[in-house]
């Protein structure tokens, strides 16, 4: 399925851009995302998330600084082995199906380390905003659900590789850190992202 997404992204990149990437006033990027839960999320679901996508918009504001917004979606899932869970005098046994959707919505800023005219453009980035988490634990015919919004920060290291004057490949490693909310501890995860960027 993800192969189809990548093929589709590359295909579309050939047709939907109209300006030179070198102008780099603003760009839109779509990335496939693989994520790994850390902290409380990693304890809850230890399996990697192979279902994820990220949409980014960036606009040059001054020199090597670009600002914009990130909208992501990462789906974590794990089927746990049959086990017994006890609280006080109560015990419950069964197979748990654990799901967590993380939707980061962030204002972001990237700083290009090299010249914006170079073919390879490494950058560092920061983001601030919120992550909407939807955690569902299914056991038998029952579902326990929590869906808090958490204040979040993001750190990022990545690079843009100019494929043509119209489009680039973008690779990024990101770390999202959500902060504790009433119903859930802070949710954090690390993600690797690969996708395309198109000059608008």
């Amino acid at each position: 399925m993800m192969k189809k997404i990548l093929v589709l992204m590359i295909f579309c990149s050939l047709f939907i851009t109209t300006k030179s990437y070198a102008q780099q006033e603003s760009y839109m990027s779509l990335q496939y995302s693989v994520s790994f839960g850390t902290g409380d999320l990693g304890d809850y679901i230890s399996a990697a998330s192979w279902r994820g996508a990220l949409l980014e918009y960036r606009s040059a504001v001054k020199g090597k600084l670009m600002v914009g917004v990130d909208l992501g979606w990462n789906v974590f899932y794990e089927k746990k082995d049959y086990d017994t869970y006890s609280v006080g005098t109560e015990s419950l046994s069964g197979i748990q199906y654990r799901y967590q959707n993380a939707v980061p919505i962030l204002v972001a800023a990237d700083y290009l380390i090299l010249s914006s005219e170079s073919l390879v453009k490494p950058y560092v980035g920061l983001g601030i905003g919120t992550i909407y988490n939807e955690r569902s634990t299914d056991m038998g015919m029952y579902r326990w659900k929590e869906n808090p919004w958490q204040f979040a920060l993001k750190g990022e290291l990545g690079l843009l590789y100019e494929l043509s004057y119209r489009s680039s490949v973008k690779f990024a490693a990101k770390y999202y850190n959500g902060f504790k909310s009433n119903s859930l501890d802070g949710q954090s995860y690390f993600s690797l992202n690969l996708g395309m960027a198109w000059v608008l």
Partner: peptide, 30 residues
């Protein structure tokens, strides 16, 4: 293009139990 990505993402959303016995649970209290 963007809509198709969302549809593709949704279509590969993980499923749950495949067999009846995977939904069996046992509760005890004392």
């Amino acid at each position: 293009f963007y809509l198709s990505i969302i549809v593709l993402m949704g279509s590969c959303y993980p499923n749950g139990a495949d067999y009846y016995e995977e939904l069996d649970i046992v509760y005890t209290d004392y």
